[in-house]
Design a protein around this nucleic acid. Structure first.
Length: 455
RNA sequence: GUGGAUGUAGCUCAGUCGGUUAGAGCAUCAGAUUGUGGUUCUGAGGGUCGGCGGUUCGAGCCCGCUCUUCCACCCCA
């Protein structure tokens, strides 16, 4: 063999076993989405770059995969630009399409484009791969699936509550222990306002997000670097060290943020959500986490993040409310909220915890041994009847040696093998072998069907 | 984007101080067994030692560059 072929960095092949497991995740997620009245959509893998650029911040733009224009892509580039290797200037001329980076922005585009055909509030789900030109590492891929649920066109906090319920139900079905972390961008804005650095909200949230990891001293250093005054930092400190249960924290926070209208609004939003979910029978803990920031800057209200409790991995689900995502596409004042399940990370967690059900790969119930053309033709008739009864069955395609055909059944873990040679054909019988017990006996078709259906 | 590690058969990995023809287990294929799998025994195939260049009489081993994979940071699902 020449060189073994390979696939691009950060991408993966999925074997049949892996696909069975992935479908196990997708099927459960879909069933919950459907149950709450969400409808499926799909959008193309590639979007116009104008749709994608500028929506994910500067970092995000760098992580977009760009698609080279077809045909003579250098035609519009002038010699000077080429000679000076001005990548940025040339890029916009040679590439006008890119692979989608998430499902939310394409969804916003979809909503604006089809607004006249949609009924609002529009509840949709979308399960498709997305691509990021990130450096791959543990739990991070360049091609991965997101499972998005969003409701757009309704400002009601009942939607937040519904999403929390959906998260609770999905992870309940998958038997995964998780904690839902909840925060609100308005509170973060209120904090920034209160300490007198309203314009530094993002910097403040990113820094306090690291509090657990790097400790207060380094956070202070980082905030100073970002240009926050000592005075502001002193005001911020008591907020960072708020202790207690979520309700208690909220109460204290309300006093601190008194002067900020936005902050108070954020608190009352969170409180409303809590009041609703307290009446529900949630298995998952919903924790108020003031350090939860989330990078995407289009969030304006609630933000969610779900962490697996029994595995060291980043978040397995995240999302939030965005008040004006469609505004950038010319449709202002439409509020939406949604979350995204990271199927690949959920997969990694379940695998690590050995939490996949076992009997998932027995796709074929019975294999017919091939003894030659005459016998095979006879088997084909039987197969038709067996399959009509809803049983997965196959005939070995070649009249290979018995050892080979039995070995095939064995390694495919097919539980039954049917052997029909000249004798069986004459007697109108099927020699049925149970591959688990090794037991073998001649049966007629009716008996065979009832044995297979019992399993 | 920054820093660290890694790469030998399809897979997991040995390979001494730089020294003859690079090994093992698993997997694959064939035979023992022409209508019976798993277990066993015998045999076979399979290598650009990640790639390119350098040092050397001689490189899987030393040096440089590059790519891959993994880990940390940044960020993120």
């Amino acid at each position: 063999m020449a060189q073994t072929p390979s696939i691009p960095k950060g991408t993966r092949d999925f074997s049949p076993v892996e696909m069975v497991r992935r479908n196990y995740i997708f099927d459960h997620i879909k069933s919950v989405f459907n149950k709450y009245g969400y409808l499926p959509i799909e959008t193309p893998a590639m979007e116009n770059l104008s749709t994608l650029l500028g929506k994910y911040g500067e970092e995000g733009d760098k992580l977009l995969f760009k698609i080279l224009n077809s045909g003579d892509f250098l035609a519009g580039v002038n010699d000077d630009e080429l000679k000076e290797k001005k990548s940025a200037a040339i890029q916009s001329k040679i590439s006008e399409k890119g692979l989608r980076y998430d499902l939310t922005v394409p969804f916003a585009r979809f909503v604006v484009q089809h607004r006249n055909d949609l009924v609002f509030p529009f509840k949709r789900y979308q399960i498709q791969p997305v691509w990021r030109a990130d450096k791959p590492q543990k739990g991070r891929y360049r091609e991965f699936y997101q499972c998005d649920v969003d409701v757009i066109g309704s400002p009601s906090l009942l939607n937040e509550v519904e999403l929390i319920k959906i998260i609770d139900e999905v992870f309940g079905l998958l038997k995964m222990n998780v904690v839902i972390k909840l925060n609100n961008r308005k509170i973060l804005a209120g904090i920034a306002e209160t300490v007198g650095a309203a314009d530094k909200m993002i910097d403040i949230t990113v820094a306090i997000d690291k509090l657990d990891k790097i400790g207060i001293d380094k956070v202070v250093v980082e905030l100073k670097e970002k240009g926050l005054s000592d005075e502001a930092i002193e005001k911020l400190k008591p907020i960072l060290f708020l202790k207690g249960e979520s309700a208690e924290k909220l109460c204290k926070l309300r006093t601190i943020l008194e002067g900020s209208e936005t902050g108070i609004k954020g608190i009352s939003e969170i409180k409303t959500v809590y009041d609703f979910i307290n009446g529900l029978n949630l298995k998952t803990k919903v924790e108020l986490d003031l350090t939860l920031a989330r990078g995407l800057n289009y969030y304006t209200g609630a933000i969610f993040e779900v962490k697996a409790l029994d595995a060291e991995i980043g978040s397995v689900c995240g999302g939030g409310r965005y008040d004006d995502l469609t505004g950038i596409f010319g449709m202002p004042d439409v509020s939406g909220v949604g979350v995204s399940f990271g199927a690949d990370r959920i997969y990694d967690v379940l695998l690590q915890l050995n939490a996949f059900p076992t009997e998932t790969l027995n796709t074929t119930k019975i294999l017919f041994v091939n003894f030659g053309d005459k016998e095979a033709a006879y088997c084909l008739n039987l197969l038709e009847k067996i399959r009509a009864a809803g049983i997965n069955a196959e005939l070995y395609p070649d009249a290979a040696k018995m050892k080979k055909q039995m070995g095939y059944a064995d390694s495919r873990k097919i539980p039954f093998v049917a052997m029909i040679g000249e004798n069986e054909m004459n007697e109108n019988k099927i020699s049925l072998k149970n591959m688990v017990t090794g037991e073998q006996k001649p049966v007629d078709l009716t008996t065979l069907l009832s044995i297979l259906q019992m399993e």
